[in-house]
Design a binder for these strands. Structure first.
Length: 382
DNA sequence: TCTGGGGTCCTAGGACCC
DNA sequence: TCTGGGGTCCTAGGACCC
């Protein structure tokens, strides 16, 4: 190809305040109000005989739980994702609290993805509320395609989304956040200095809180400052590989392809207890939770047609220290009894000297259940 | 009464094999 | 007996993302 690689057009589509927006389709009377999604499952609104709705307010909530999503009205009051609900109640006591309803979100997720796939089938799933779309093979202008996709999503779900179309995933991801909600942003490499460089480094997908702090100590706050940083300084701080990636990202360079069919690497279940549990004093309760987690993971594997060889557990102590142990079996399994047996072996290798707040069970090293040789054959001694 | 649940990827050391 | 690398697998922890 004399012209080199064909120019790519990658879209990133992000549903606007997804969980909250789905909840508002269930409770349209709450439109325009500060609404927060999260917490335990028991905050379900109830309706009086005379038709009046009653909702839980943030100030009424007691116990553990964080905000998963909030409407833009609630965000304006300081209710942001991952914030503890009782903490958020200090600045937004009257905001309405709704419990998460994943079944509904999954249904809407399937609807919007199917609507996009009708127009552009090369989709990479990035979770329940966002996707990348490869538009390189399409003829229409990015503006026309973007509008068409947004209209299709609205038609199928009644919900709005924000889209950016750019030469690669990195820029598309940054771009979809530039004009939220209901945005359509078009970016080219020529836009990088004007539209990307003024942004904080944390806007780059892959630069989290730790890296942001470390860059800050080097005097680097914006993506533009990162682009101008001395490579030796970055390499000394972060190592060669990460430094190279940082520099490429700051210049908007990213060659990653759309992955339309990523394989599952691990399946896990975990739960944070309502109160911290004592390894001995609450033994029966812990044991029951442990069994349930093993059964849930086994059920998830069976549903996905997967079996796995490496069984792992995760514990979090009351001081938030987290430890993991894992153990690889001879043969992959999805059997809850075998998973539990291996998980118990892992558990025995941990000093249980504090109260626990979380327990988790994980299966990795996965393969398709159909690939497994018949038991009798696998058990042969030669 | 801080801090959910489901994931992916990377690093690093040790075992083990050639 | 000392001294090698290279490759792969296993395990533990941590950063990061939605």
């Amino acid at each position: 190809m004399l012209d080199g690689a064909p120019r790519r057009r990658i879209a990133h589509l992000d549903m606007d305040a997804f969980y909250a927006s789905v909840e508002l389709t269930k409770y349209p009377q709450l439109r325009g109000q500060p609404v927060v999604i999260g917490g335990r499952r028991d905050a379900v609104p109830r309706q009086d005989a005379d038709g009046t709705w009653h909702y839980m307010r943030l100030r009424d909530y007691v116990g553990r739980g964080v905000i998963t999503t909030a409407t833009y009205e609630a965000r304006a009051l300081g209710a942001r994702s991952a914030l503890g609900i009782m903490k958020a109640a200090q600045t937004a006591p009257d905001a309405i609290l709704l419990p998460v309803d994943f079944e509904s979100y999954r249904r809407y997720s399937r609807l919007f993805k199917a609507a996009v796939a009708n127009i552009a089938p090369a989709i990479e799933d990035r979770g329940i509320d966002e996707i990348y779309i490869d538009l390189s093979a399409h003829e229409d202008s990015s503006d026309v395609l973007g509008r068409r996709i947004k209209a299709a999503v609205r038609n199928a779900t009644g919900l709005s989304c924000s889209i950016a179309i750019a030469p690669n995933k990195l820029l598309a991801k940054i771009g979809s956040d530039l004009d939220k909600p209901d945005g359509l942003t078009l970016l080219s490499m020529a836009d990088v200095p004007t539209r990307i460089w003024p942004l904080a480094v944390s806007k780059i997908n892959g630069i989290g809180p730790k890296a942001t702090t470390r860059l800050g100590t080097l005097g680097i706050q914006t993506i533009g400052e990162l682009a101008e940083a001395a490579p030796e300084v970055l390499q000394r701080e972060f190592g060669l590989g990460y430094a190279r990636w940082l520099i490429d990202a700051a210049h908007g360079r990213d060659e990653r392809a759309i992955d339309t069919d990523p394989e599952t690497k691990s399946v896990s279940r975990e739960t944070t207890f309502e109160r911290d549990l004592h390894p001995q004093g609450d033994r029966a309760e812990l044991s029951a939770i442990f069994d349930t987690l093993c059964q849930q993971v086994a059920g998830d594997l069976a549903r996905k047609g997967l079996i796995g060889r490496t069984i792992g557990i995760k514990l979090r102590f009351d001081d938030f220290r987290t430890v993991t142990r894992d153990h690889s079996l001879e043969l992959p399994t999805a059997d809850p009894v075998l998973i539990r047996r291996a998980a118990i072996q892992c558990l025995r290798r941990i000093d249980l000297d504090r109260r626990l707040r979380l327990l988790g069970v994980r299966v990795a090293n996965l393969q398709s259940g159909a690939d497994r040789p018949p038991i009798a054959q696998a058990a042969l001694p030669f």
